[in-house]
């Protein structure tokens, strides 16, 4: 699936890109690659298509392969389409000790999908991830930039209901504005 809309950042995003690049010495604009990829993912439906990655390469004046190899290395970059809300449930030790497996199973049942799958309406994708630095408030999951901690089945239910009623795409950059830079 490739996006039909023209691949071009919004003006606000372009302004952010310029600020990101300005943080590094002359000629080291490649350093801005990770932040720019996050921005691209937020701008273009939550994932990085080859066309989007080519666009990023052009913006940073680097080769497309330099973008592909980076995008495929880091787990936060999605190389395939994902639902509007990517639920990332931590499954590592501290969360496992406090019931992460049961939380995953509960979400699977509630949404009628398995880990790694997306609901037919394109609303949710369920993913398990490694420790997110929230071990003292386990079990936990992340959706967009937000940490949901001390999860119980009840809490999960109300979070999912809330997300569904909002119906919005959640990204890691939610609440990031050009003013912060």
């Amino acid at each position: 699936m490739s996006t039909s809309k023209e691949i071009k950042f919004s003006n606000e995003a372009l302004e952010l890109v310029a600020k990101m690049i300005s943080r590094y010495p002359e000629g080291k604009q490649k350093s801005a690659l990770l932040p720019v990829l996050h921005l691209a993912q937020a701008e273009f439906d939550g994932w990085l298509s080859p066309e989007v990655m080519d666009y990023v390469a052009e913006l940073l004046s680097i080769q497309p392969i330099e973008v592909y190899e980076v995008a495929s290395f880091y787990s936060m970059f999605n190389l395939k389409p994902v639902g509007k809300c990517l639920l990332e449930v931590c499954r590592t030790s501290s969360c496992w000790l406090r019931g992460a497996n049961e939380i995953v199973e509960h979400i699977e049942k509630k949404l009628g999908i398995k880990e790694g799958e997306t609901t037919p309406d394109g609303m949710f994708t369920l993913k398990t991830v490694e420790c997110l630095g929230s071990c003292g408030t386990a079990p936990m999951m992340m959706c967009g930039a937000q940490f949901h901690e001390n999860l119980t089945f009840q809490k999960v239910d109300s979070i999912l209901d809330q997300l569904k009623s909002e119906g919005k795409r959640k990204t890691y950059l939610d609440d990031v504005t050009v003013n912060h830079y």
Binding site: L33, E69, F73
Partner: peptide
Amino acid sequence: LYVQVGGGAYICGEETALLESLEGKRG
């Protein structure tokens, strides 16, 4: 002073991998 965000990779905590990542490369 600037903040740079990573992309989700434990290995980037290793200091030389971190520097690679800060240069916009694989960790």
